[in-house]
Simulated assay, not measured.
Amino acid sequence: MKYCAFLRGVNVKGTNMKMAEVCEVFKDAGMEDVVSVLASGNIIFSANRKAEDLKFILEKAMSEHFNYDAFLFIKSEEEIENFWKSNPFNKNENLHVYTFIGNNNVENVLMKEFEAASKTDNEDAKIVNENFYWQIPKGNTLDFTFGKILGRKNMKDQFTSRNINTFEKILKKIATNSQI
C-alpha cells in the first residue's frame, strides 16, 4: 500500500535534516519505494502494514537516528486524495489554505481553538470529511492568533499542517512513482 508520512517540525527551529538521509532511515526501517516531496518532511513509501504500526516503527527509527522526539502522521494515498479533493475554499492568489493532519478528532480541537481566536479579514476555517482547513491571507502565518497554535509544545504530538498545494504535489509524485 502507498503511504505518505508527514513529519512534524522538520527543518524548523534547529531540527534540520536532509530528506535523502530521512529516506535512508525509512528504507532501513523496511519501507520500500521511498521518496521525499519538498523539504518539509513529506515521505512517500510503500509498506504492507497498518498505519498505526508504521507510525510506531518510523517514529522510533527517526528518533534514534536524528536524536530528537519524532512525531509523524501516516496517511494512505486515498486519505491524501481526500485532503486534496475536500478543500472547501476557492483558489485565491492572496490567500493560503492549510490542512491539518493529525490524530483522530484533532479537527474538533482545532476548530474550538479557531473559534476562540481573534481573526483577520478573509481568515476562515472549516471541517470537511473530518479534515480541518484553515484559510489565511498570505504573509506571516505564525503571527496570526490561530497560527500560534502551530508552535505549541502541548500540541506537537497531535497534528502537523501543510499548504493545500502540497497534497497535489504528493499525489503527482505517487502517480509518477507508480508508473515506474
Rank of each mutant, 00 (worst) to 15 (best):
K138D: 00
T141W: 03
I136L: 10
E113S: 11
D121R: 12
I136A: 00
D121S: 14
I127M: 02
A125D: 05
I127P: 11
S118N: 12
A117R: 03
E123G: 07
N129A: 13
N131T: 14
E123R: 01
T141I: 15
Y133N: 00
Y133S: 02
E115H: 08
G139H: 09
K112F: 08
P137V: 08
E123H: 06
T141R: 03
I136K: 00
T120S: 14
A125M: 09
S118A: 12
T141F: 15
F132G: 09
T120L: 10
P137H: 00
F114L: 02
K138T: 12
E123D: 02
V128H: 04
A125L: 10
T141G: 14
D121L: 14
S118Q: 13
K126T: 06
N122M: 11
E130K: 15
P137Y: 00
N140C: 06
T141V: 15
F132P: 13
W134A: 01
T141H: 09
I136E: 00
P137K: 01
F132T: 09
A117K: 05
T120F: 08
E115A: 11
K119F: 09
S118G: 11
E115Y: 03
K138I: 14
I127W: 03
N122V: 05
F132A: 08
W134M: 00
K119I: 12
E115D: 11
F132W: 07
N122F: 14
K138P: 09
T141K: 04
N140W: 01
D124A: 15
I127G: 09
Y133R: 00
S118T: 15
K138R: 14
G139R: 05
I136S: 10
A125K: 06
F132M: 07
A117Y: 06
A125C: 12
Y133G: 01
G139A: 04
E123M: 15
P137G: 05
Y133T: 02
A117L: 09
E130V: 02
T120E: 13
D124H: 07
A125F: 08
W134D: 02
G139D: 04
G139E: 02
N131Q: 10
T120A: 13
N122S: 13
E130T: 13
N122A: 13
T120N: 05
K112S: 15
E130P: 01
N122W: 06
P137A: 03
P137C: 00
E130I: 04
Y133Q: 00
E123N: 03
I136Q: 04
A116N: 14
E115I: 11
E123I: 08
F132C: 07
K112W: 03
G139N: 06
I127Q: 01
Q135I: 07
E113F: 12
D124R: 10
E115F: 03
G139K: 08
K126Y: 02
A116C: 07
K126A: 11
N140K: 15
K112C: 08
T120I: 13
E130L: 07
K138W: 06
I136T: 14
K119Y: 09
P137E: 01
W134Y: 10
N129F: 05
A117M: 04
N140Q: 08
N122Q: 13
K126C: 04
A125E: 02
K112M: 08
A116G: 09
T141N: 07
G139I: 10
W134R: 02
K126W: 00
K112V: 05
E113L: 14
E113C: 10
V128E: 07
N131F: 07
Q135P: 10
N129E: 15
A116Q: 12
E113T: 02
E130D: 14
W134K: 01
N131V: 15
